[in-house]
Amino acid sequence: MKVKALVLSGEGINCDYETALAFSLAGAESKRVHINDLIAGWEKLEEFHIIAFPGGFSFGDHLGAGKALANKIKNAFSQGTKLFDGLKDFIENGRLVIGICNGFQVLVKLGLLPALKAQGNQEVSLFFNDSARFEDRWVKLKVNKTNCVFTRGIERIDLPCRHAEGKFVADRKTINELWKNSLVVMQYADDSYNPSYRYPLNPNGSIDAIAGICDKTGRVFGLMPHPEAFLFFENHPQWTRLRNKFINIDEMPKKGDGQKIFENAVDYIKMHF
């Protein structure tokens, strides 16, 4: 079967090209779809298995990161029905949603993550980094055992963070609920891949070093770091040092570790549809 992935574009989404590439390298038929084409009904959500909300600066991050795009998605009508309802049905029908960086911020502000109580109410947020600035910095991540579909078989991963508003915040009760339900998928970590609260290992000051979470189904996943920016071994900032492990370039890994996240998604759809 052909796995179809919709990669949202337009309105200041920036990482749509590389996110679409990630899904096609993983074996999916991926398509960059402008949000207005989705609203106009030129493209139909139900014809896809996966939807990705890529990174970027939707609406320039004015009014807060991801806020204005979430407002658009929540209020848009597509052919008489609410786009947001369509998105909820999409999840209900066993399909997959991933939000990366700005896309994670959108999912959180839409109330699709973590959706502890119900979909549609914002329960957590991604606040200004403690450093109060945008930083492009590779981080080490510990991947926890959860039922997140996207991280199966991954225990640790290095990825770049590139944001100004990525500090995961929520009240203690909500954080406890996340842990209780095993929804904390990824944590910023030190060299031994143990969770770290120290800057710059934890680049933004996230509570409990939380870098990514999923909902209870494990099929909606959001993270601040960028797996689509590590599709090739040569994306890793240490690759000119790591390549010495290999005898020649043909031995070098053909792909980057970020690729696995997209492959997991495609494999899951192949198994379940």
Binding site: N14, C15, Y17, E18, L21, G55, R133, F134, E135, D136, R137, W138, P160, R162, H226, E228, A229, F230, L231, F232, E234, N235, P237, Q238, W239, T240, R241
Partner: peptide, 22 residues
């Protein structure tokens, strides 16, 4: 340099800051 995104689009192989501690 750290405040510029130097790897959006996923193409940057030799980045502005490299080395053992990047």
């Amino acid at each position: 340099v750290r405040q510029y995104d130097h790897e959006v689009l996923g193409n940057t192989i030799i980045k502005p800051l490299m080395g053992k501690y990047n």
